[in-house]
Design a binder for these strands. Structure first.
Lengths: 246, 246
DNA sequence: GCGTGCGAAATGTGATCACACAATGCCCGA
DNA sequence: TCGGGCATTGTGTGATCACATTTCGCACGC
């Protein structure tokens, strides 16, 4: 990828970084990978202790994540991992279906030989991983494929918004991964997208992506249980349990 | 407006609020109204002194604005009011043209009599203000009209993104105001939008907005000078002035 | 006696400040 | 024009304050 290093999923290299940046990245990673789950409360002190730093850098990092909508803030100021509801997921997907194809269209004129060389292996990696049943790796390949294109769109504002959306969707990854694996994987059109881009048909590639996002959304809505989706049986079981949490 | 108070342009009531919130709102207001201009550097200490608070709340507020893309951060960490380039403005407008009509479509089913009562005066206020040549008031009425609808879309994530975009566009307001005033005002289709919404044609209203945004963008691109748009004469005058700023 | 409520104390948590440290950039003088 | 010193600015720490929540215990009622 000729562009700068992926700013979304930074690798290690946490040596010389300011502590705030370190805290921010670690929290973001935890969010995206599902290490912390929806509903979890992140108190400044607790996180600071976990990271062995003082409250300030953590506070800044937490607020930054909140400003990016990756965390919610209780009225008291405590940060919580947002629970994605069915409506929230629908909204998120609808926005993605508008912005990400737009990024593909914008990127198309900027793509060239070096990009094909970088993108093609990612499609192959996805297929291989899915065939092997490793949904996490397949997802990672997909993600790298898409962001490889998005970064080429030369649209920093748009890229930032898309990253925000992915971050917000992060906590859902775990369940989606399970579901998708169980379902044998969603159709993925990245190979066709790449072909369209090679032929210079940016809008066609964008349309493929839009359809893919909408299909995937439909599939997830049909199979994944969301926060607040308690079944009748669960609601009944819930009644009369005064001491429950969450 | 039946919804909660406008969170984008808060009025006064800065008594019981945390200082960080106060600093945040005042900075945002300054940004949106053009009180601080693109390129201005906002040092934590300077702002803290201006607001008569210590550095901490200001620091948090500045970082929050930066996370929302309303401010840029120099590598050193100093916050600066972003300069909107021609390309940046084009990108911003393209995103708005996708998201804001979407919000209108989503809001349509939720609108009812109370909304018409609240929105109609805003259209009238716009017309009156424009007739009187008061572009600032006309803009404010437009803004309230649109956000009144957006808030009804029941899409918090989308609303947040749109607010971010407006915030980012804020520093440009001053020049746009001048230009638009000089040009006699852009066509505005809010009356027609309101009519379409009343008839339950949400998509039609959305389309009107999309066209309006695109027209306005075109007009602004054609008339407003952007950062980096130096004319030939200016570029010539620039040569050989080693000590220049900005 | 057992269950239920209410209230106060204890705890947790965020907000803010003043201070110390280090990196950055600027300005002045050679 | 180049170098060095100094002012500015961001980063991070620890203590302290006020507020919110939770928890525990006691008293009341069944």
């Amino acid at each position: 990828m000729p562009e700068a290093a992926n700013s979304f999923f930074p690798q290690d290299g946490e040596e010389g970084l300011p502590l705030e940046e370190m805290a921010y990245r670690r929290l973001r990673e935890a969010l995206v990978t599902g290490a912390i789950l929806p509903g979890d409360r992140l108190s400044i002190r607790a996180v600071a202790a976990a990271f062995s730093v003082s409250a300030m850098p953590v506070r800044t990092a937490l607020r930054r994540l909140a400003a990016e909508q990756a965390l919610d803030l209780l009225p008291s100021g405590t940060a919580v991992v947002p629970r994605l509801t069915r409506a929230g997921f629908t909204e998120l997907s609808a926005i993605r279906a508008k912005l990400e194809p737009m990024a593909v269209s914008l990127a198309a004129p900027h793509l060239g030989e070096p990009h094909w060389k970088a993108l093609a292996p990612l499609v192959a990696a996805h297929d291989a991983a899915r065939a092997a049943g490793d949904a996490a790796v397949a997802q990672a390949a997909d993600r790298d494929f898409l962001f490889g294109i998005y970064r080429s769109a030369q649209a920093p504002l748009l890229l930032g918004l898309i990253e925000t959306l992915w971050l917000r969707r992060g906590p859902l990854f775990r369940s989606v991964r399970i579901t998708v694996t169980a379902a044998g994987g969603l159709r993925h059109s990245h190979g066709a997208m790449l072909e369209a881009l090679r032929r210079g048909m940016g809008d066609e590639a964008a349309e493929l992506l839009r359809v893919e996002i909408e299909d995937a959304t439909r599939a997830i809505l049909a199979t994944v249980r969301f926060e607040g989706d308690d079944t009748a049986a669960e609601r009944l079981a819930w009644i009369g349990k005064p001491g429950r949490r969450r």
